[in-house]
Structures are given as structure tokens and as C-alpha cells.
Lab assay of single mutants.
Amino acid sequence: MDALKSAGRALIRSPSLAKQSWGGGGRHRKLPENWTDTRETLLEGMLFSLKYLGMTLVEQPKGEELSAAAIKRIVATAKASGKKLQKVTLKVSPRGIILTDNLTNQLIENVSIYRISYCTADKMHDKVFAYIAQSQHNQSLECHAFLCTKRKMAQAVTLTVAQAFKVAFEFWQVSKEEKEKRDKASQEGGDVLGARQDCTPPLKSLVATGNLLDLEETAKAPLSTVSANTTNMDEVPRPQALSGSSVVWELDDGLDEAFSRLAQSRTNPQVLDTGLTAQDMHYAQCLSPVDWDKPDSSGTEQDDLFSF
């Protein structure tokens, strides 16, 4: 819950932080000083300027060897085509990944977070970031790969997607708890209302004896509580940590079903599988986004697919 609360507080303090972009060759504004600060901008989305290598189908939802083989196929196909790589912007948030063309600003792909089953910074092609997700059109699994400016960037994108998945799962947990509370309150309110109706004398007997209905007592009954809980029953509950912020979080049926399955089948359902080692994760978390744009010590960066 700490990640969720800190993310909400950060967004309320400075929503404009989320509009910064990394990996864009110096076009961005001043960047936060450390990885923790940038992680807090996830709610509205972190932007990464990358190059799209392509996509291939895979048979399993996750796995280092599986993704490595898929990336190898994608890279080989991209090299064989001889075409310049498409420059894209990857927007990562707890909602998922939005992929747009840098030149036309046209939407290429919009992947809900619950469809993503794996992401990684490839070991062999260490400047490549990739994720595996279920197609929104059918049940097939797709591996999408992107060329980053350097290994640090690939690791940073991988960690960002993993963190977005974690925050999304926490949102789901909060929403589920809130819905259970509202359902319980609604049920209790309905029981109270039913009890009051059972003990209320029939209207005919009131008229016969000349008694008047006590409207004041009726007004004191917990009807307002019942209506408050039943009027918006169809509205999706939102985490309290975000009250007053500009973010509107809505959970669709697909996300609810997917996270429910994860909660039942996995020990740590909030953790998205990645190909990063503990050492890689520690190294990337210690980086400032400013470091992502620094040239690798191995030599001059080449803006070309064939540089790796």
C-alpha cells in the first residue's frame, strides 16, 4: 500500500511530472533526481522514447528462454528487412502500455495491464526491452520488442512496467475491499429498513384510530445511509488515497477476473515476472533518469539497429 499512497501523494503535489519523457535525446524537461521519484509518476504514465523492432507469436506467457528466442527472431526479421526502425513513445501506467508513433502521434497499440504476463531486458541484446501480452483480438500470446538507447534504459522500462503492474494490483485490492464494505453496509441498511417496515402498523389501523404518522421519526431512520450505499452501487469504487486528485481509476471486468485468478494461483500475485536478476534490479533502481541518457562506457552510441 505504500507504493499506492506515495504515488497518489506525488501526483497530487505535481501532476505535471508524469508528462516528462525519457530517452528522447535531450528533449525532456528537468528530471527527478532518483528512481523513487520517477516511480511516483506512474499514475498518469511515464513516457519512454524507443524504437519498435516488431512482434512475434509465442506459445507460453512467460520465460527467459522463451523471450530470448522470440527477441532473436524479431531482431533477425528487422535486420533482414533493412528498413529504419519506427520511433515510438511507450506510455507506461497502472492501466497498461500505450504505444504511439512519434511522427504521426497515431495510436499503435493499447495493452491493458492485466494482459501483460512478462517483461524483460534481454541478456543477449542488452539494449532490447520486450514484453509478452495476450492479444486483445484473440487468445494468442505476442512478444513485442523495442530497441532502447542503452542497457540502462531497457532495464528502466522493464522495472517501470513491473512497478505499474504492482500498483494496478494494489488498486484492485483496495477497490475489492471498498466494494465488500459497501455491499455489507448496503445489506445491513436493508435489514434495518426491513425491520422498521415489519414493526410499522398498517396504514388502515392508523387511520381508524385517528393517529398521525410521525414524519420526524421517519426522517431519523437510516434511510439516507441505505440510499447512499445503493444509489451508486454500479459505480466502481476508487482508492481513497486518490481522493481529490485528477486521476480516475476504473476497474473493468477483465482486470477484476484476471487479478482474482492471480490472487488464487500465485504466492506473490502482485509481482510481474521479469528477466532481471536481483543485481540488475538493484543497479537500475539506483540510477537517476539522467543516467539513462548518458552514453555507455563501451563506446559511442549508434542510432541504428545494427549497432548491437
Rank of each mutant, 00 (worst) to 15 (best):
Ala3Phe: 10
Ala3Glu: 11
Ala3Thr: 11
Leu4Glu: 04
Lys5Phe: 01
Ser6Ile: 09
Ser6Pro: 12
Ala7His: 15
Arg9Glu: 13
Leu11Arg: 08
Leu11Asn: 13
Leu11Asp: 01
Ile12Arg: 14
Pro15Cys: 01
Leu17Ala: 15
Lys19Asp: 09
Gln20Ala: 13
Ser21Arg: 15
Ser21Gln: 09
Gly26Thr: 12
Arg27Val: 12
His28Met: 15
Lys30Gly: 10
Trp35Phe: 02
Thr38Leu: 08
Arg39Gln: 03
Thr41His: 10
Thr41Lys: 06
Ser49Asn: 13
Leu53Gly: 00
Met55Trp: 07
Met55Glu: 12
Met55Ser: 07
Val58Ser: 08
Val58His: 00
Gly63Arg: 01
Glu65Val: 13
Ala68Glu: 01
Ala68His: 10
Ile71Ser: 00
Ile74Tyr: 01
Ile74Asn: 00
Val75Asp: 00
Thr77Ile: 07
Ala78Cys: 14
Ala78Glu: 01
Ala80His: 12
Ser81Gly: 10
Ser81Met: 11
Gly82His: 02
Lys83Arg: 10
Leu85Phe: 01
Val88Lys: 00
Val92Asn: 00
Ile97Met: 15
Ile98Asp: 04
Ile98Asn: 04
Thr100Gly: 14
Asn102Asp: 14
Asn102Ile: 08
Asn102Cys: 07
Leu103Met: 09
Gln106Thr: 15
Gln106Tyr: 06
Gln106Ser: 10
Ile108Ala: 05
Glu109Met: 06
Asn110Pro: 03
Ser112Val: 02
Ser112His: 02
Tyr114Gln: 02
Tyr114Cys: 06
Ser117Tyr: 11
Tyr118Gln: 12
Ala121Gly: 15
Ala121Asn: 05
Lys123Asn: 09
His125Asp: 00
Val128His: 00
Phe129Lys: 00
Phe129Thr: 08
Ala130Glu: 00
Tyr131Ser: 00
Tyr131Trp: 03
Gln134Phe: 09
Gln134Trp: 07
Gln134Met: 13
Gln136Pro: 13
His137Glu: 13
Leu141Arg: 13
Cys143Tyr: 00
His144Thr: 02
Phe146Thr: 01
Phe146Ser: 00
Cys148Ser: 13
Ala156Lys: 07
Ala156Tyr: 12
Leu159Cys: 09
Thr160Cys: 13
Thr160Glu: 08
Val161Ile: 06
Ala164Phe: 10
Phe165Met: 03
Glu170Lys: 08
Trp172His: 03
Gln173Lys: 11
Ser175Met: 02
Ser175Trp: 08
Lys176His: 10
Lys176Val: 08
Glu177Val: 15
Glu180Thr: 10
Ser186Asn: 03
Glu188Thr: 05
Val192Leu: 02
Gly194Ala: 13
Ala195Pro: 08
Pro201Gln: 15
Lys204Val: 05
Ser205Thr: 13
Val207Phe: 03
Ala208Asn: 07
Thr209Asn: 09
Thr209Ser: 09
Gly210Pro: 12
Leu213Cys: 08
Leu213Val: 12
Leu213Trp: 03
Glu217Phe: 03
Glu217Pro: 15
Glu217Cys: 03
Glu217His: 08
Lys220His: 09
Lys220Gly: 03
Pro222Val: 07
Leu223Ala: 15
Ser224Phe: 08
Thr225Leu: 05
Thr225Phe: 03
Val226Asp: 09
Ser227Asp: 13
Ser227Met: 04
Ala228Tyr: 07
Ala228Trp: 02
Thr231Cys: 03
Met233Thr: 12
Asp234Asn: 05
Glu235Asn: 05
Glu235Val: 13
Arg238Gly: 07
Arg238Ile: 09
Arg238Glu: 04
Gln240Phe: 06
Leu242Ile: 05
Leu242Val: 14
Leu242Trp: 14
Ser243Gln: 07
Ser243Cys: 09
Gly244Cys: 07
Ser245Glu: 07
Ser245Asn: 11
Asp256Tyr: 03
Ala258Trp: 05
Phe259Gln: 08
Ser260Glu: 12
Ala263Ser: 12
Arg266Leu: 03
Arg266Met: 03
Thr267Met: 04
Thr267Pro: 01
Thr267Asp: 04
Asn268Met: 10
Pro269Ala: 04
Leu272Lys: 06
Thr274Phe: 02
Thr277Gly: 09
Thr277Ser: 11
Ala278Gln: 09
Met281Arg: 11
His282Trp: 07
Ser288Glu: 04
Asp291Asn: 12
Trp292His: 09
Trp292Gln: 09
Trp292Thr: 03
Gly299Asn: 05
Gly299Trp: 05
Gly299Ser: 01
Thr300Gly: 12
Gln302Ser: 06
Gln302Val: 11
Asp303Gln: 08
Asp304Val: 09
Asp304Ser: 12
